[in-house]
Write a protein that binds this DNA or RNA. Structure first.
Lengths: 149, 149
DNA sequence: ATAAATTAGATTTTATACAATTTAATTTGA
DNA sequence: TCAAATTAAATTGTATAAAATCTAATTTAT
């Protein structure tokens, strides 16, 4: 049990550890991704699309935990860079289907180097951090459940 | 060792687990903090100041891993809410000293309820997550080192 | 069949984030 | 000692984030 006076200390907050870690990790990616002309959010959006494209903004947002207010301008930006196309679905015109272009697919080859560069640059070992990643995924599911309810 | 085709999968990225967790946790705080009239970033800024105020923007930013471009408008906002004052230091006029007002200090009492509300609302136990928090702190130090270098 | 409800995206507003530049003040070194 | 270097904030520009609202399209329930 954490005593009263320790309760609000910054370093005792799990939320702050996440918040600060997330931003510092993003900083680590910045110089690596800038060589590909991508920001961090654009990168994870492409990670999702390399796994599965031809989907609507809604499904993409669900996988990234991002909503249309964030994705619409970001996808327009990637479209203007020629990495993907945005097309209204004929079956249901409310849907905008996101599809990678050849150029967008080709970028995956160059991106394949990113994880190794990231880990070695920070002196980290991916294998060692695998249990942590699994733990975070499970916490993410739990928190997401609480947010949705 | 993660095989080639698994390398770029979204769910295998530690960075994405951090990124998504951080944003989902922030969402969990939103309804609780809105009762205090605070955003999440304002809340952690106050956590830092409740521990130690009378400091400059630089030192505050170092503790929060935030720079002046983020803090200046945020601190002006909290100043306009009457929670703190921003005063040029007489010893060195380049420094803007941040000091809590009585109202700012008083808010700490109401904020003392926040962590418990957060954890119980999400069905989490603070004690159980303590080892995770410690692990993140240590990773944060390591990543920060790599970012600085 | 058609009004009501729902759904998908886009837009608007507010609030972060951070790099890069600018301004003002202080410190340092020849 | 005083020009050069350094430092602290503020400002500017670009890119997220997310709530709230809006528009258009589709579904549904009667």
């Amino acid at each position: 049990m954490i005593p009263e006076d320790e309760l609000l200390k910054l370093e005792n907050q799990l939320c702050f550890a996440f918040y600060a870690c997330s931003r510092e990790i993003t900083k680590l990616y910045r110089p690596i991704l800038s060589k590909l002309g991508l920001t961090y959010t654009q990168y994870i959006t492409l990670l999702a699309l390399w796994e599965k494209d031809g989907i609507g903004v809604k499904e993409l947002g669900a996988r990234l935990y991002l909503d249309s207010g964030t994705l619409t301008p970001l996808l327009k930006k990637l479209e203007s860079q020629g990495l993907l196309t945005r097309t209204r679905s004929k079956a249901d015109e409310r849907n905008v289907i996101i599809e990678l272009t050849d150029e967008g697919r080709a970028l995956k080859t160059r991106a394949a180097e990113v994880p190794a560069q990231l880990y070695s640059g920070a002196g980290l070992r991916q294998e060692e951090l695998e249990p942590l990643r699994a733990q975070l995924q499970s916490l993410l599911r739990k928190v997401d459940e609480a947010v949705e309810s």
